[in-house]
């Protein structure tokens, strides 16, 4: 009798230790998971997902606080990657968060700009250069097209312009035909 109790409690202690260790390990993996999710997200930092940026959204997905279909710039392709990573079912983009738009960059009408710096403060990736009372310019290669600078501008001089297709970004289209029947 006493033997059995000892064996069982020994086992319980040992397994408890294993579980405790595993939970520490799991915690580390949680961070790795956030990294992996963040690596898939497009880093537009537009906050359309309902979180203040891509990383917070990645954390929310990892914690189960958010769905995988809340990111419009990533579109279905990214949802598919997230579904693969997390081993969950694909679901189409939730329209509540917006629709995917063609990649755009911000453009400042330099004649109207009053140099107020509000857009600089809004830009999540420091893609706007300028100083107080000086005209501001967008660094097009670094603009993610999030559009966060548009609303704060008091004189409405920022527009979003879709990036035109060039020979180096052009893609072959998927062949489009109706399959015949045998």
């Amino acid at each position: 009798m006493i033997d059995a109790i000892l064996v069982m409690s020994g086992l319980a202690l040992f397994l408890g230790g294993v579980l405790g260790y595993a939970s520490i390990r799991f915690h580390v993996q949680g961070n790795v998971l956030v990294e992996k999710i963040d690596a898939i997200l497009p880093q537009t930092q537009c906050a359309q997902c309902g979180f203040p940026g891509c990383r917070p959204y990645a954390e929310a997905i990892a914690d189960g606080r958010a769905q995988i279909n809340q990111c419009p710039p990533g579109g279905d392709a990214n949802i598919r990657k997230l579904a693969d990573l997390l081993g969950v079912e694909f679901k189409p983009l939730n329209a509540k968060h917006g629709a995917p738009k063609p990649k755009s960059v911000a453009f400042i009408d330099e004649n109207t700009c009053i140099g107020c710096t509000l857009c600089i403060q809004a830009c999540p990736v420091d893609a706007i250069s300028g100083a107080p009372k000086q005209m501001h310019t967008i660094i097009a290669q670094e603009c993610t097209g999030c559009g966060l600078c548009v609303a704060p501008c008091p004189v409405d001089c920022i527009g979003m312009i879709p990036v035109p297709e060039s020979i180096s970004t052009w893609k072959w289209k998927q062949p489009d035909y109706l399959m015949g029947v045998a």
Partner: peptide, 21 residues
């Protein structure tokens, strides 16, 4: 192939954006 190249370009751009952010 061209879809994969485009994804790689996007990945590069988003890595840059992450660092800047």
């Amino acid at each position: 192939k061209s879809e994969i190249w485009a994804q790689e370009r996007e990945k590069k751009a988003s890595d840059l954006a992450r660092i800047r952010h």
